[in-house]
């Protein structure tokens, strides 16, 4: 639980400090403050609502994985834990996921330039790497099962299958957004249109899931 508590405290600390320093010390009933407040435009953050929504969603997903990691840490201490030897294939998968993130970053830069053909190529390459990563993860599962390491064999295995599976599910959700972006790109004709913001948000999400994977993979390797 300490991981999660730490996560929540850090998050609360950052948000709290920021709010406090900028917004929460005003005395709204006083005249001087009132003049300042009247010119306030209404939004707290200088980003679009969609991006705000994405960041809040990422905080929720972080809480979700942090709790799993807390559970992992607590369950690991008990006697029946038999550490799992992770298949070396995971290193290759990690590399592929890094490549997909790089490709998405490249697409994002192209979208900022307004370079439509490059965005399309970039999205296809990203999609290819992402599907390759997912296929690699399934292959890793099959390798484990082939060597007699099933989900229910030991709780370490269960955690392995569960964490990789949930990470994969989040990536699948990302792929749904990716498919929608492709669709928007096709509808937009020669311009980028709404696809531009979708590319921006998806890229953030991809980087985030890469980070989650690196943390999870590190934890699995270390134990």
């Amino acid at each position: 639980m300490s991981t999660t508590v730490l996560f929540v405290l850090v998050l609360a600390g950052v948000v709290g400090w920021w709010l406090f320093a900028r917004q929460l010390t005003g005395r709204p009933w006083e005249l001087a403050q009132r003049k300042l407040d009247d010119s306030h435009e209404g939004a707290t953050l200088a980003v679009s609502p969609a991006r705000t929504g994405l960041w809040v969603l990422l905080a929720v997903i972080s809480s979700f994985f942090a709790l799993f990691m807390s559970a992992y840490g607590m369950r690991m201490m008990l006697d029946d834990w038999r550490p799992l030897a992770e298949p070396s294939l995971l290193w290759g998968n990690t590399l592929i996921l890094v490549l997909s993130s790089i490709a998405f970053q490249w697409t994002r830069v192209a979208a900022r330039r307004g370079d439509r053909p490059a965005v399309q190529t970039g999205l296809i390459v990203t999609g290819f790497f992402t599907f390759a990563f997912l296929a690699g993860q399934v292959l890793a599962w099959r390798q484990l099962s082939a060597s007699g390491q099933y989900l229910h064999s030991n709780v370490a295995n269960a955690f392995f299958f569960l964490l990789t599976g949930l990470h994969g599910l989040h990536l699948l959700g990302g792929l749904a957004a990716w498919a929608r972006t492709m669709l928007r790109l096709m509808q937009a004709g020669t311009a980028l249109g709404q696809a531009r913001q979708s590319v921006e948000l998806c890229a953030t999400y991809w980087h985030y899931l890469l980070l989650v994977w690196l943390v999870l993979f590190g934890m699995l390797l270390a134990t």
């Binding site: 709204p28 209404g42 939004a43």
Partner: peptide, 17 residues
């Protein structure tokens, strides 16, 4: 709820109002 409170307030509506 979070995004509306943070991002969709009308002019003059600071957090402390």
């Amino acid at each position: 709820y979070v995004c509306t409170v943070l991002q969709a307030r009308c002019r003059g509506m600071t957090l402390m109002r």
